[in-house]
Nucleic acid binder design. Structure first.
Lengths: 334, 334
DNA sequence: ATGAAAGCGCTAACAG
DNA sequence: CTGTTAGCGCTTTCAT
């Protein structure tokens, strides 16, 4: 492994000078500069960033923690983070907790030991321990969709209310009166918020004779499949789902049972994953701009890394309704 | 930052001993051991893996290079790699080239500088430069679906022939005589192989009066959409597509044009991405076990890291047909 | 059973 | 404009 000394020797300068020409960190006369460059070429020098990081305390590396890369919610977040990271000369460690607390803990410890400059936590909150682990260190981190107000951490919030309000109004304007909601898992904060937003907005429309009901799901396709039984027992005119996977599972199952979507029941999802465009009918859904969210998270982290003393940063992402084929006028029961 | 010296001081031992109790790398008497452990606790010691790596030359970190995490082909590969990596105490740097040669080059240079112990390249071969860059270093790497025989690198191959053979036989048994193939991009090796496998197998069935034709696609949904025009011009009874996205684009477009799938045309995809199960009708497709492929790639890399002198490793993954709703008996034109 | 000391490759005062 | 030197935190050989 060739190092500064080797270069210095053949360029007849000190290793300090080598460092300075490489980093352009102080003036070096063109002649010596050239000698150094030449020596580097000759020796086919390659930087050892590890050594630099040890010396400077900066690794230009960040950690990105997600729950499950197979969940279509995540890839675009990863893409957004990664793109902005690379553009700013950061590498990213990807940690997929797989909803496994032990695995997440292990990965995070490694990140800490490897001295990442910051961490983005976009995993679901089942992995709460991560968070406690982190607050003990001095590593900056940003929370994506954790709705953790108590804690003084940079955070990205999703404002589900706007999109859910739009969807209910959309349904109401189409004449729907009986609207169900299929929730996410009980222990997931983002799911609780989606649900309570739905409930409060539905409640608000009560004087327009809107009735609603909540069915428990799990944010996976099979949650939608199971919810179908419940739905069929006492058919509503529309169902809003806590995420798209649920909506798709539900829709497929209802269709398999001979129920026409949207003629008999309208369905609305949430997330706008790519799947939602491709199913038949295409799913009306509430959009979350995940690519932009990923970039925003990385942006907050970069700010924080640059200056640890800026005040706490928060960023809200609105959601908005995308109307496609799975919603239409309510069936009338005259 | 507390270090070995701090610990050593309060435990009244040498830093060497501290190292040895931490790494369990030589016998330390229980008493001194306890003193050290106690001191560590007291100081809330955290390892600096960077320093260790600099000293040992081992980072317990690998790089995973893919083209596009949004492409549903990749997440499961990533999952497979990551899972086995973490289980073996490796962290993974994720590099998403985004089909951008410059970006890929930048990421790889960083990986090399950061002294990863190995690299898995599962990006498409447009990024060939990576490869040249790498062969110059001493970093082990494994190639996933590169079909690069000339080079002496550990590789994972996909045997598309088995699955494509099955699909053609499936179609033939259903009475199909006129079968089209929608290809991938011309400059993608894996696409060329899929295409030539199709062609040679179709050719083999010529005496059964099978005719075929190749339409150019691009492995994206819009490639399938465009291919639909070509298909409709002179309708075949079945179309095999170089990947699922293409098949889905094609299917959606044909359906939008009033053509019934599979009644009028049967369609077969390749990859078995999750989407293929969810479209209507569900897509008959050729399966690639991407999760297992990811694990296998990591396995090869681990072997290689453990012993750089073992002979070149190669692993073949068979493909096999999954029959779903998008294929049925050929229409008869009597 | 334990320690001293050199070294991994780089950075950054400080000095001149 | 350039060099000397100490140091980042850990490992490892060689002694004892």
């Amino acid at each position: 492994m060739v190092n500064y000394n080797d270069i210095a020797k053949i360029a007849k300068v000190s290793s300090t000078t080598v460092s300075h020409v490489i980093n352009e960190t102080r003036f070096v006369s063109p002649e010596t500069r050239d000698k150094v460059l030449e020596a580097m070429q000759k020796l086919n020098y390659k930087q050892n960033l590890l050594a630099r990081s040890l010396a400077t305390g900066i690794t230009h590396t960040i950690g990105l923690v997600i729950s499950d890369i197979k969940n279509p919610f995540y890839p675009e977040i990863v893409q957004g983070v990664e793109e902005l990271a690379v553009r700013n000369d950061y590498s990213i460690f990807l940690c997929n907790t797989d909803y496994d607390v032990g695995k997440g803990e292990k990965s995070i410890s490694a990140l800490i030991g490897k001295k990442v400059d910051g961490i983005i936590i976009a995993s679901s909150q089942a992995d709460k321990f991560l968070f406690e682990e982190l607050t003990k260190t001095v590593i900056p981190f940003v929370l994506v969709d954790w709705n953790e107000n108590k804690i003084n951490a940079d955070s990205i919030y999703f404002d589900f209310e706007s999109g859910i309000k739009e969807s209910i109004e959309h349904l109401v304007s189409l004449g729907h009166k009986k609207i169900y909601f299929v929730s996410g898992p009980k222990d997931l904060k983002t799911a609780n918020i989606r649900e309570s937003n739905f409930a409060s907005i539905a409640e608000y429309h009560k004087d327009e004779r809107i009735s609603y009901k909540i069915i428990e799901g799990n944010h996976k396709i099979d949650g939608g499949i199971n919810a179908a039984k419940e739905v069929e027992k006492d058919m509503p005119t529309a169902v809003v789902c806590s995420n798209d996977l649920t909506a798709i599972g539900l829709m497929k199952t209802l269709q398999a049972d001979g129920i026409k979507i949207p003629d008999q029941v309208s369905i609305i999802g949430l997330d706008n994953i790519i799947l939602s465009e491709i199913v038949s009918p295409a799913l009306t859904t509430i959009e979350l701009e995940r690519y932009l969210i990923g970039k925003a998270a990385m942006r907050l982290l970069l700010n924080r890394i640059k200056n640890k003393n800026i005040p706490r940063q928060t960023k809200y992402f609105n959601t908005k309704l995308i109307i496609r084929g799975s919603t239409s006028k309510a069936v009338s029961f005259h």
